[in-house]
Amino acid sequence: MTPHTKLAALSAPSWPPEPEIDDELRELEAVSRGLETHTLSANTRRAYVKAWRSFETFCAVHGLDALPAHPETVRWHVAWMSVQTDEHGLPRFSVATIRQRLAGIAEKHLREGLLDPTGHRGVTGLVRGLAKLRATRAVRKRPLLLDDVLRIIRAMDHDVYPAGVSAARDELAIWLGFAGALRRGEAAALSLKSMELNRLDGVHIHVGASKADQDNSQPDVVVLPFGGSPRTCAPCAVHRWVALMGACADRRSTMRLLYGYQLDTHVCGADGSTPLISSADLDSATPLLRATYRNRRSARIHAQGVTGDALHTMLLTRMSEAGMNPSAYGFHSLRSGFVTQARRNGADPSDVRRQTRHKSDRMVEIYDREWLPLQRNAVTSLGL
């Protein structure tokens, strides 16, 4: 059999004739189509569209049928992806990417009422073999611990204009990632209404739907607790940034807030201090972490929110400004830093999961093995 041979594709039984439908059923069909768009996240839909286009192109080049596709056609596509390299000679498609591409091919077939060719044993066995051939340990971002976080924050120009505007936002973003253990996409998606001032706890954050809870059905509250020191107080960062957002239309008010900052004094209500904002200031669906623009003389806070990628870039920039090498770090370093710092300080895995919202202790165990190899390790009982 040559690659150009037309292969018989596996297909489901033919559909029965479509029944006559009235106007109401046509409207319900439109509603059902709209609901279907929410079965997958936007990122997943984009990835599947890209996967299908790539597969269609491959089939067109080699004269093969893409829909319905024969399992052998999919095997050849997997083999093709496995040998593609980039300009550095490294694999262009990781095993994870290849699996994602196959998921896109499967989704297209199933939506068309066809059998899934990617589930054939010849395809799954090929991917399994490639995974073993390329077996490597995942490279995880190194954690940023509390001392690292404070070093980054101290290097910012907080009480000067206009640099202090973006410094206030970036400090809050860092505390959201570290104390809140939020992923960058979760932090970027927060609105003012996501925040709730609590006189006993500090600030409650309602994360809502997220990567790990796309149905928004799990408990979603995380806490930014009052800090023992204003320098480690995440609620103070919330108050400072939200107050600046309220004053952003007036340059003098913004400058007055920045110059009046007492970074060594609570501004969140802790220790009898006067809070800068109230719950009424959070009664808005506008983004919490909003984009900023500044030059040497002025600063503006835009209406649109920042992206998760922008938060990642911001952290690396702030690390460089603090004299740190950011090459092994990312925004996820704040979340992994939360786990590592909490475990170093004696927190149980179940306590850690209350904040990270992991469903099991497995991920906490991974952090322990990567960054706390002596944690609960019998080697400490050898008497060395």
Rank of each mutant, 00 (worst) to 15 (best):
K211P: 01
K193D: 08
Q214I: 09
V223Y: 14
A212R: 11
N198K: 08
D215I: 00
P219H: 05
A187L: 05
A188F: 02
A187C: 04
V223M: 15
E196S: 14
G227D: 04
H204G: 03
D220L: 13
D213S: 05
S210F: 05
I205C: 11
L192F: 00
V222E: 12
V223I: 15
N216P: 08
L190Q: 03
H206V: 03
D215F: 08
V222I: 11
D213T: 03
S194F: 08
V223T: 12
H204I: 06
G227I: 01
L200Y: 10
S194H: 04
L192C: 00
L200F: 11
H204F: 11
K211C: 02
L192G: 01
D201F: 12
P230L: 07
V221H: 08
F226W: 03
G202L: 10
N216W: 10
A188Q: 01
K193Q: 12
R199Q: 10
G208E: 04
P230N: 04
A212V: 02
P219A: 01
L224Q: 03
V222F: 09
Q214L: 15
G228R: 15
S210I: 06
V221T: 06
D215Y: 09
L192W: 01
K211F: 01
P219E: 05
D213K: 10
S229V: 00
H206Y: 10
A187R: 07
K211H: 01
N198W: 09
D215A: 12
N216E: 11
L190R: 03
L190N: 02
I205G: 04
